[in-house]
Amino acid sequence: MQSFLGKRAVASAISLVGLIILVFFLSRLTGDPTDLYLPVDASLESRERFREINGLNDPLLIQFVHYMGDLLRFDFGDSIRRSEPALEAVLRGFGWTLQLAVITMSLVTVSAIVLGSLAAFHVGGIFDRIATFFSLIGASAPDFWVAIVAIVIFSVGLGWLPTSGTGTPWHWVLPVAVLFIRPFGLILQVVRGAMITALHAPYVKTARAKGVRNRPIIFVHALRNALLPVITVIGDQTTAILNGAVVVETIFGFPGIGKLMIDSILQRDFNVILAAIMVTAFAIFLLNLLIDILYAVLDPRIRY
């Protein structure tokens, strides 16, 4: 287990360094932030000064060496836009997104597993039809469209829910609901498929021959065997939200990391882009580790 953890950490660190190099240079291809932050008629001196302050005057390689040096001291630099440490801005945004992801994915997981299991138990039955209906919607409805239509109906038309921002629990309803649809449809299908296989497995026959009731057959015998592919997809979908539910966060004016990232890219706020990428990368590393550990917990045949 320890050597597994060590190997994973080293492999992830290597990819992270590669990612930093890539993003560092690519983001600088978008142009000079000076043009964005100073008025068009700003003097040459003030432009010089701005570049000097933000360390943009050095050759690119020197900038990179400085950046990496700072990074080793856990200094992620300052945000040009916000004049605060980039990491602070990022962690604040990440906190919001993390809450959004945890709430959404918890709801998705519970509902998809229950409905998917019941759908698999009676293929073609009422639960199966509901499941198929929702997965089709989940797979085919584009979230930006659903988000806008939801705002039109529930906020503008009915006036039940706020259109954007945060503050009350009501502010969470629409973003969570819109983010819920796609992973729910997908995971529902995975649960259904895996459960159909598990419910036809020979060990289920054994359980029936023992006289075990339907509920433990579904939720004790079959479900744990069906969960491996399911948690893989859950991890995948959680990653997608953590990576920034850019569209949904932007539409709902939700101050998460997705919105922060897209804003920083548009504002050439390089330090924030890099910090955001490193924070999400680290979170995804932890998430994948958690999934690997869950594998071993669920299936005793898997040992690292």
């Binding site: 497995a201 020979p202 060990y203 021959a209 006289g211 015998h221 744990r224 299936d299 005793p300 045949r301």
Partner: peptide, 24 residues
Amino acid sequence: RREINGRRIAMIFQDPLSHLNPVY
């Protein structure tokens, strides 16, 4: 029927590995 299964009439199968639940 469930009351009879296992209690009055029990059954064993050909391939015990696949007929035992691997995760319990």
